[in-house]
Simulated assay, not measured.
Amino acid sequence: MRIGELAQRTGVSPRLLRYYEEQGLITPSRATNGYREFAESHVDVVLQIKGLLDAGLPTRIIEQLLPCLDKPETIYVPDVTPEMITTLQHEQARLSERIDFLTRNRDAVAAYLEKVLSVKSANHAMT
C-alpha cells in the first residue's frame, strides 16, 4: 500500500509517517518508480508507534522497544547502557503513574454516570 492509504488507515499523517521512517521506526520497500510501499504489517506497527508516542515515550526508546512488541520473549538490545536502563525505568514509572491517574478518572466518571442514571431513572419513575 502507498503512504496515503497507510495514513488513512492509521490516522497518522504522511508527513509523520516519513518522520517515523527517518527515525528508523518503519522501513517501507520502494517500488520501481521510487514510491514507498508499505506492507499490511505496517498498519499495526504504526498504531503501536502512535500509542507509544501518545504515552509520551521518545522515538529513541520506541526504536529499542519495537522489536519486542511482536515477540516479547525475543528481546534483543544491541547496546544497553546504564542510561538506557535508567530511562526505561523512569518511563515505566511515569506510565504507571499515568495509568493510575487515568484509572481514577475513569472510576470517577463511572460513579458520576451511575449516579446521574439512577437519579434520572428515579425521576422518570415518578412521572
Rank of each mutant, 00 (worst) to 15 (best):
K71E: 09
H42W: 05
R104Y: 07
V12N: 01
G4L: 03
G56S: 08
R106E: 11
D70Q: 13
T27P: 10
S13H: 01
E40K: 09
L47K: 00
E97T: 13
A122P: 08
K115P: 04
T103V: 10
S41P: 06
Q23M: 03
E114F: 13
I99R: 01
E22N: 03
I3Q: 00
L117G: 03
Y76I: 15
Y35K: 10
S118Y: 11
T81A: 06
A111G: 07
R30E: 08
T86I: 12
Q89L: 15
R106D: 10
K115H: 15
E91V: 06
T32H: 15
V45Q: 13
L102V: 01
K115M: 15
P78V: 12
G34I: 07
L113P: 02
T127Q: 14
Y35Q: 11
T81F: 00
I62G: 10
R94E: 13
D54R: 09
L17H: 00
S41L: 11
H124V: 06
L16Q: 10
L117S: 08
Q64E: 15
G24Q: 10
C68I: 05
K115A: 08
E21S: 06
A125I: 03
S121I: 05
E114A: 14
P78D: 10
R30T: 12
P67V: 09
E22I: 01
S96G: 15
Q89R: 13
A111V: 07
I61Y: 06
I3T: 02
R36N: 00
N33W: 08
E73W: 08
N105C: 14
L52E: 03
T87Y: 07
A31D: 11
L102R: 02
S96Y: 09
K50Y: 02
Q92M: 14
S41Q: 12
T32A: 15
I99F: 03
V109D: 07
E73S: 04
P58S: 09
E63I: 08
A108E: 14
T86P: 05
R104A: 14
D44Y: 12
A55L: 07
E40Y: 09
T103Q: 12
Q8F: 01
T59F: 04
I3R: 01
R9N: 01
